[in-house]
Write a protein that binds this DNA or RNA. Structure first.
Lengths: 209, 209
DNA sequence: AGGCGCTTGTGAACGCACGCACAAATCGCG
DNA sequence: CGCGATTTGTGCGTGCGTTCACAAGCGCCT
């Protein structure tokens, strides 16, 4: 498979793709292209995806349920090792073969399962507390679906996924298509990074801290 | 509120924030700062968030359920106007006050509700067909949660959200923290853009087309 | 065996975004 | 009324990512 084919499939420039791959080493053959299977192995190795990491999911509301049942995690080398919730009514429920445990059980489970990554799917109000608990048990990577900014100590990685922001971006493009307002579409605008996004409700207090 | 305060709250540089805001016009007061309420109004106006757009959600599996019940959409100015699924068993189910309709009803509903944005939460195999149907009824903005690359005509915006990729990025950082491999952390690597991501399974056929 | 076409890997240039630093402007206080 | 403190708005330099373009290398066909 040529870099041109890979690039068009991925929707990027072929030169960029080649340069990226060259960082891994020379796994292509000139005049022929790349061995896709070998490439995948190498990428997985360098990215550390060969080891199946254990993931703890906190918050089994609507979103938590969906994440717990999401096939994409298992097929990409992640093992959801435990489900937690703070609501006693939800504790004991079984989802996809896993029983929801109370979030206070986290220290015990984390030690037993060697949790590497924590996923927060709680309401925004509970997110910071959960993050603190995760950090306390040694988790250094957090995926945050709650619409709020988490403060964590140095050395802990937080990635925030705000589903509404994706819609807002689409809405903005829709707006531009309609009215031909020529606002320079600067790549990563700080605007979308504002806590609470652009919601009128409670943005004041979110910023005012 | 000073730009410094806004910037630290958003986690960005204050100069960048001021420059971004300056694109909207001069809504700050020197020596004083910004009127947050006014700022929000202006940003919402420029970004076109003042009009509540109608969203159609296709695919009410685990993820679809979560999205249909997600408060963040409504509070950010989006109205989920209709739910669709191809599975007759799911048609008729009521979620959050909306009844799931068969995807073949899309043309009729789209005309009645003036759908602006389509959200695809179907399995990957069905995503392209749904995208085609959305495009056919005049939808020009698509948010795709299925782990596949959609091909759409010019003028249609597609944003892809792959939840597993977020975990992979965290996993990679975790990997780097463990072994101190010095791989240049190039900003937007093409690797993560590969269709099918880094999954071993069926990547071959995904690329081989 | 030799040449030819195709593809990789990479040096170099372009462009863009980020951040610094400063002039202009506003408010408060003496 | 004037001065100093504070903050915005922005010109400019720097660094990085992307892209072009080309030499080196590989396989195939004759």
């Amino acid at each position: 498979m040529s870099s041109e084919g890979l690039a068009s499939a991925a929707g990027v420039n072929s030169a960029k793709l080649r340069k990226d791959l060259s960082h891994l080493g020379s796994y292509g053959t000139r005049g022929v292209g790349y061995d896709v299977a070998l490439l995948i192995d190498q990428i997985e190795f360098v990215l550390g995806l060969t080891q199946r990491r254990a993931v703890a999911l906190v918050g089994v509301g609507n979103l938590g349920h969906a994440l717990a049942g999401y096939d994409g995690f298992a097929s990409r080398g992640f093992r959801i090792a435990a489900l937690f919730d703070a609501d006693p009514a939800r504790v004991g429920e079984e989802i996809n073969g896993l029983v929801v445990q109370h979030v206070d059980e986290l220290p015990r489970v984390a030690a037993a399962e060697s949790i590497a990554i924590g996923v927060i799917a709680t309401p925004a109000a509970a997110a910071q507390r959960v993050a603190d608990q995760l950090v306390a048990v040694g988790v250094t990577s957090i995926l945050n679906f709650a619409p709020c900014v988490l403060s964590v100590p140095e050395g802990v990685d937080v990635r925030k996924v705000d589903l509404a922001i994706e819609l807002q971006i689409l809405s903005f493009h829709e707006h531009r298509k309609a009215s031909l307002t020529a606002l320079p579409a600067t790549g990563g605008s700080a605007l979308t990074a504002l806590p609470g996004g652009l919601a009128v409700t409670d943005t004041q207090e979110a910023i005012g801290t």
